[in-house]
Write a protein that binds this DNA or RNA. Structure first.
Length: 422
RNA sequence: GGAGAAAUGGCAGAGUGGUCGAAUGCGGCAGUCUUGAAAACUGUUGAGGGUCACACCUCCGGGGGUUCGAAUCCCUCUUUCUCCGCCA
């Protein structure tokens, strides 16, 4: 969430930049500032009341010690009024503070100045393109047909044991999936990311920390018996690793990578867009995450983008990079680059990675801070990205690497798969 | 799952109703000494709110309660440890 102090000092700029998301935030911002003013006024009143009551208590203690019980009892009566006052004040204060927080939770991050304005994915700005789109033979198939033909992914079996959106990978399909995970993790650790294995269920506090709660509750699977949530992305447990941390400047940057399955309830649309691997309730993803000094976070974003580019280049998949427009930008992000692989057989682009700088938006809610060189406490910047999301990479490989007599395995993956062709 | 014990500052660890935001040690930072370093010595060193700055307020695992007053007493939740049971 945004910092109130920042809103106070940059009110017009905040409103102007939020307009890129096609929202008029002026009313919300005014409300925030009004609530904050009320909150501070109540805080001052409460503090004064408590201060008075504290000093009376001290006096009472001293009177009792010197045997002046009668005088002490007189003072005691005085404190009861103060007690009632402070009770009322603190209730009023909590109410204001809750209202303020609730409102702040609803305001998305302020987009970076280079974010293009716009409404839909049509308005995203293509900033880079690389790789040749292969010319496939005339009866080339989409990946869901290939999956059936070579018996490597079984969607029906998944329906039987769980439901739609939970595929079963089989034989060389399962092995290819495992190869990709290992390959991605190796690339990430080579680039300096520390590998972690994370829990796949998180508690409520973690859901709040990264902003899935309270608003996007319906997007996660909820284990009601224990009040835990299945993670929608490794971002949730990985970022919460640092919740409530106060780092020293020399601890920065932190760079971690982890593989997890991801669970998402969202229903999605229909037809080809959700066909096969395009949209699933459970899928695998390798994530990269950084905690950075505010001065360095945009350099870090560039490094992350370059890193993902390197992987796609090695896999020899045709891809493009989009700078997301305000309307398409995630709630917590200040700047996001999406990577899309071209699926030749489907004749469309498939999103396979999303790399974002959240600046201090997540860190504020997480209370993730560091001591700067002046000894002052400052919020860190957080960034994360997929490196990479498995299903669509798999779809892209199956479709783009198909030949009349089987599916070729990209060269860099052969050491991981142990076979060259499906 | 059952029985018991515990949770205090970056770490270790004292503190059982007012003099406690909290002894002491380690660590960190600054200084003295030194060609430099180490050692030794001196000083300093939690977070949040609030203020122009002070004052002041809150925080001793989380939440609630008793009391004029709570790190300290009570309730509750969570976590950790020990023992028993079960188990990949």
């Amino acid at each position: 969430m945004l910092q109130v102090a920042y809103i106070r000092e940059h009110k017009e700029d905040v409103i102007a930049r939020l307009a890129k998301r096609n929202i008029d935030a002026s009313q919300m911002i005014d409300d925030v500032l009004a609530l904050d003013e009320d909150r501070r006024a109540l805080q001052t009143q409460l503090d004064n009341t408590l201060a008075e009551s504290n000093s009376l208590s001290k006096e009472i203690g001293n009177l009792f010690k010197s045997g002046k019980a009668a005088e002490a009892n007189v003072l005691k009566e005085k404190t009861s009024q103060l007690k009632e006052d402070s009770k009322g004040l603190s209730e009023a204060l909590n109410e204001k503070a809750d209202a303020l927080n609730e409102l702040l939770y609803k305001i998305p991050n302020v987009p970076n100045t280079i974010v293009p304005s716009g409404n839909t994915d049509e308005d995203n700005e293509e900033v880079y393109r690389e790789g040749d789109i292969p010319k496939l033979h005339s009866d080339a198939l989409p990946h869901w047909e290939l999956a059936k033909k070579y018996d490597i992914i079984d969607f029906e079996l998944g329906n039987k044991i769980t439901g739609a959106g939970f595929p079963v990978y089989k034989g060389k399909g399962a092995r290819l999936q495992r190869a990709l995970i290992a390959y991605f993790l190796d690339k990430n650790t080579e680039a300096g990311y520390t590998e972690v294995q994370l829990p796949h269920l998180v508690n409520e506090a973690s859901g709040f920390g990264t902003g899935q709660l309270p608003d996007k509750e319906g997007q996660m699977y909820h284990v009601t018996g224990d009040n835990l949530y299945l993670i929608p992305t490794a971002e949730v447990p990985a970022t919460n690793l640092f919740r409530n941390d106060l780092l020293s400047e020399s601890d920065l940057p932190k760079a971690i990578t982890g593989y997890t399955p991801c669970f998402r309830r969202e229903a999605g649309s229909y037809g080809a867009h959700v066909r096969g691997l395009n949209r699933l309730h459970q899928f695998d993803k390798v994530e990269i995450l950084r905690i950075e000094h505010p001065n360095r976070s945009y350099d870090a974003l560039t490094e992350m983008v370059e890193h993902v580019k390197g992987i796609l280049k090695e896999l020899k998949l045709p891809y493009r990079i989009l700078r997301l427009c305000g309307g398409d930008l995630g709630f917590t992000s200040a700047l996001t680059y999406d990577f899309e692989v071209f699926s030749t057989a489907q004749d469309r682009w498939l999103e396979i990675s999303s790399v974002s700088n959240f600046e201090n938006f997540q860190a504020n809610r997480l209370k993730l801070r560091f001591k700067n060189s002046d000894g002052k406490t400052e919020l860190c910047h957080t960034l994360n990205g997929s490196s990479l999301a498995l299903p669509r990479v798999l779809a892209g490989i199956l479709e783009n690497y198909q030949t009349e007599d089987g599916i070729q395995i990209p060269e860099v993956l052969i050491p991981y798969t142990g076979f060259e062709k499906i």
